[in-house]
């Protein structure tokens, strides 16, 4: 009988140990609560937020936290993959792991954050609705989705292109077989159809001027580079000369 009572605390201890092992963040919190270590978030908060723009990829500050890395939601870890929509703890419409990836990889670049957020939102939408919406309902979304594609193209910079940032953020969003399948199912509704390319300016597609954003960052979008090339290719016309001849 005594031995049985002994098994209960031993079993409980085993459960706690397994639980802690499977949830690193909770384990950290427990150990911190027991005074064994400092919680990571608390440790991070000890540093002030940098009051200047920082690109941690170029020169990571040691005395402050870059603004774009402050106030990020916690890493959801494996739990973030348990459901289709994952965890969005700050309820900003962006899955926490995706939000963190964008901030950590490209947070130093406002135009990249805009672009990758747009691309990620599109993919998250597909994942959420893939398998739910029917063909006709999905196809009705075509014009809006094409407009977003145009905006994504207009925001693309050489830095993003060479790093294949769009591909990577899409891979972050569709990081489980089920998410990948739902995104594919969503796209499947458009298979063998024609999608019109909207004839709009970059600003009309995005609702803001992508080029201004790029210039503010000291870069140029690929679309802008292409247009510059295109303009250089054209020979100048001289309509006024013709007009004078007419007279």
């Amino acid at each position: 009988m005594k031995k049985r009572w002994l098994l209960i605390p031993l079993g409980a201890a085993a459960v706690v140990l397994v639980w802690l092992a499977l949830n690193p963040e909770r384990r950290g919190a427990v150990t911190a609560a027991l005074g064994l270590t400092t919680p990571p978030a608390a440790a991070a908060k000890k540093k002030p937020i940098c009051d200047y723009p920082v690109n941690p990829k170029v020169a990571a500050p040691v005395d402050c936290i870059p603004q774009h890395l402050a106030n990020l939601p916690p890493d959801p870890g494996p739990e973030g993959k348990l459901t289709i929509d994952g965890i969005d703890s700050d309820k900003d419409g962006m899955r926490d792991d995706v939000q963190r990836w964008i901030a950590m990889e490209w947070g130093h670049s406002p135009i990249a954050v805009k672009a990758l957020t747009l691309v990620a939102q599109g993919k998250l939408f597909e994942v959420h609705h893939g398998g739910e919406l029917g063909r006709e309902e999905t196809r009705k979304l075509g014009p809006d989705l094409m407009l977003k594609s145009v905006c994504a193209f207009e925001l693309r910079t050489p830095e993003m292109q060479s790093a294949r940032a769009y591909d990577k953020v899409k891979n972050v969003v569709t990081n489980t077989p089920e998410r990948w399948k739902r995104s594919r199912d969503f796209d499947q509704h458009f298979a063998n159809s024609i999608l019109d390319l909207p004839n709009v300016t970059a600003a009309e597609a995005c609702g803001f001027d992508p080029e201004a954003l790029a210039i503010a960052e000291g870069t140029q979008t690929i679309a802008s580079q292409l247009r510059t090339e295109s303009a250089a290719r054209k020979e100048p016309e001289e309509p006024e000369q013709q007009d004078k001849e007419q007279k």
Binding site: V150, F153, S230
Partner: peptide, 24 residues
């Protein structure tokens, strides 16, 4: 994917231009 295909098309459009002999 569809989104990338849309971007590809836009890039073709920007490279080629929106007109041929003044026709949209």
């Amino acid at each position: 994917d569809r989104e990338e295909a849309g971007q590809n098309l836009r890039q073709i459009g920007v490279v080629y231009g929106n007109s041929y002999k003044e026709h949209l």
